[in-house]
Computed example of a mutant assay.
Amino acid sequence: MSTDNERLVSIITPSYNASKYIRETIQSVKNQTYSHFEMIIVDDCSKDETRDIIRSEMENDKRIRLIELADNSGPAAARNYAINLANGDYLAFLDSDDLWHPDKLKKQVQFMEDGGFAFSYTNYRMMNENGEKTDAVVNVPAKTSYEGLLKNTMIATLTVMIDKRKTGAVQMDLYRDCSEDYGLWLSILANGIEAHGLREELAFYRKCENSLSSNKLKSAVKTWNTYRKIRNINRFSAMWYFANYSINAFKKHAKTY
């Protein structure tokens, strides 16, 4: 049960053909020790049983909502739709194949309340496609600035929590050839906000063979396009940031794969 002084957390989850994983993802939210949340799942025209599974998980839990889009619009548009419906002071992001540690919301809300932070992220562990946890853990820095994030994509979407009271309204850009989530984090930090790392392993990222992150070239192209299209960075500065990004990406993957 929630208490009067607990802040509502709105969990933003896009889904598309996620029937293999979505039930486990929802269960990891239901298992949270912090109960004052709403989970807004926006389904982007799934062709499998994703929506039926979500409805079955909603039956006895009014905190979970399903929004069914009429046209396939992509994950950024689905997230934006959920953000626009969110009632919480805090926004947390969880994709339909990833999982959270049961104490994730409790510890992260406390971390942000204690520090007065607008933006936070956490360590996370990699899982394989079958949900088996690996030995690979991504350890994040204690804080990062706009300049720091331009050189490093260390912030994983499933670990992010932002305080709307401090950031103001947020939306993701809809360029499908960019990293829309990375672009949003940069847009927030460009306003002088620092992101703070809760250096505990509180989330589990599923690495699927056909996922974007498994295709390093596509990921690199999206990062470059984020510099140029979303942040409007000139070509020479973008090359400098991209060189640093490439070095840091190599170091990260050398440690975790």
Results as ranks from 00 to 15, higher is better:
Met1Val: 03
Ser2Gln: 06
Asn5Ser: 14
Asn17Cys: 14
Ala18Arg: 05
Ala18Ile: 00
Ile26Arg: 00
Val29Phe: 03
Lys30Val: 03
Ser35His: 11
His36Gly: 00
Phe37His: 01
Glu38Thr: 01
Glu38Asp: 10
Ser46Phe: 07
Arg51Pro: 04
Arg51Gly: 03
Ile53Thr: 09
Met58Glu: 06
Asn60Met: 09
Lys62Met: 07
Lys62Gln: 10
Arg63Val: 12
Arg65Tyr: 08
Leu66Lys: 04
Glu68Phe: 04
Leu69Asn: 05
Ala70His: 09
Asn72Arg: 14
Ala77Gln: 05
Ala77His: 06
Asn80Met: 02
Ile83Tyr: 07
Ala92Glu: 10
Ser96Phe: 04
His101Val: 04
His101Arg: 01
Val109Gly: 00
Gln110Phe: 12
Glu113Tyr: 02
Ala118Tyr: 03
Tyr121Trp: 09
Arg125Ala: 14
Asn139Gln: 11
Thr144Pro: 01
Ser145Met: 06
Ser145Thr: 15
Tyr146Lys: 10
Lys151Met: 15
Thr153Tyr: 08
Met154Lys: 01
Thr159His: 05
Ile162Met: 14
Val170Gln: 14
Val170Glu: 12
Val170Lys: 09
Gln171Lys: 15
Leu174Ala: 02
Cys178Asn: 05
Ser179Ile: 02
Leu184Asn: 12
Ile193Cys: 09
Ala195Cys: 08
Ala195Val: 11
Leu198Asp: 09
Glu200Val: 02
Arg206Thr: 15
Ser213Gly: 01
Ser213Asn: 13
Lys218His: 03
Lys218Ser: 10
Lys218Glu: 14
Lys218Asp: 11
Ala220Pro: 02
Val221Leu: 12
Lys222Gly: 13
Asn225Trp: 05
Thr226Gly: 10
Ile230Ala: 05
Asn232Cys: 12
Asn234Lys: 07
Arg235Trp: 11
Met239Ala: 12
Tyr241Ser: 03
Ala243Phe: 15
Ala249Met: 12
Lys251Phe: 11
